[in-house]
Amino acid sequence: MIVIFLGPPGAGKGTQAAHIVERYGIPQLSTGDMLRAAVAAKSPVGLKAKAIMDAGNLVSDDIVAAIIEERIEADDCAPGFLLDGFPRTIPQAEMLDAILTKKERAVDAVVELRVDEAALIDRLRNRIKETKARGEEVRADDNEETFAKRLDVYREQTAPLIPYYEGQGKLRAVDGMQTVEAVSAAIDAILDQIQG
């Protein structure tokens, strides 16, 4: 079972990803983690990525796709996996489709967590307040200005994936404004149906 999560920053993708990993026993593939692992393993693609990152540049889609292609060969991905942070754009989605087609696999479901953006800002304010109340350091990217930029990037680059996957009949929308448990239950209902 191959699953992709879509939704703006703060929609709860991380929380739900942890639930899916635990319930379905499939790994969560985070592009950031995979990049770091490929660099640490000094694989050919990892060395290429390291040189680019050391120069302060963003790793190209081709390299990220190559790292994903390498990673999904691992035994733990045989039953499926959850992609986190990829694809973020239509060209990346097309690359992923090509990689999976070559391996005679396909994305089974794209779960879109639909949320009210104004409510996301409230969630962020609450998270900052709770973090401070616990006497902990607030994450550097936990501020409204950075969050607004991340929302803009999501709208411009990632939101076009919604009609892309809708056109493939793979998009499943879930109301992300429900309780964490209700969102998990809605996702389970979708994935249980796929697993058959």
Rank of each mutant, 00 (worst) to 15 (best):
A49R: 00
E104I: 10
R23Q: 14
E117H: 08
T15H: 11
D76G: 12
A55H: 07
K50A: 14
K50Q: 15
A49T: 00
T31V: 04
A119H: 02
E104P: 06
M34Q: 10
L113R: 00
P91E: 09
G80V: 10
E22N: 14
I52E: 04
L82A: 02
M53V: 15
P87H: 04
I121N: 00
M53W: 09
V111T: 03
R114L: 00
A98M: 10
A119L: 12
S60V: 06
K103G: 08
E94F: 07
T89K: 13
S60F: 06
D122V: 00
P91H: 11
G85V: 03
R88S: 13
L120S: 11
A78E: 13
K50F: 09
E69W: 13
H19E: 09
M95V: 04
I52W: 02
K103Q: 13
T31N: 07
D61H: 14
A78R: 11
D75I: 11
D54C: 04
V107R: 08
E73I: 11
R105W: 05
V111C: 06
T89P: 05
R88V: 07
D75K: 15
V39I: 15
P91Q: 05
D108M: 08
R123Q: 07
R88N: 10
I20L: 12
I52N: 04
T31D: 03
A78C: 12
R123I: 01
A37M: 10
I99S: 11
I52D: 01
E69K: 15
G80R: 06
L120E: 01
R127A: 09
P87D: 04
A119V: 00
G85N: 12
A38I: 01
V39R: 01
N57I: 03
G85S: 14
I68H: 07
R114T: 02
T31R: 07
M95T: 04
L96W: 03
G25V: 05
N126Y: 09
K48L: 11
G85Q: 09
V115D: 00
A74N: 04
P27K: 13
A49G: 04
P87Q: 08
K129Q: 13
D108N: 15
E70F: 05
D116S: 00
H19L: 02
L83S: 15
G32K: 09
K50T: 06
A37I: 07
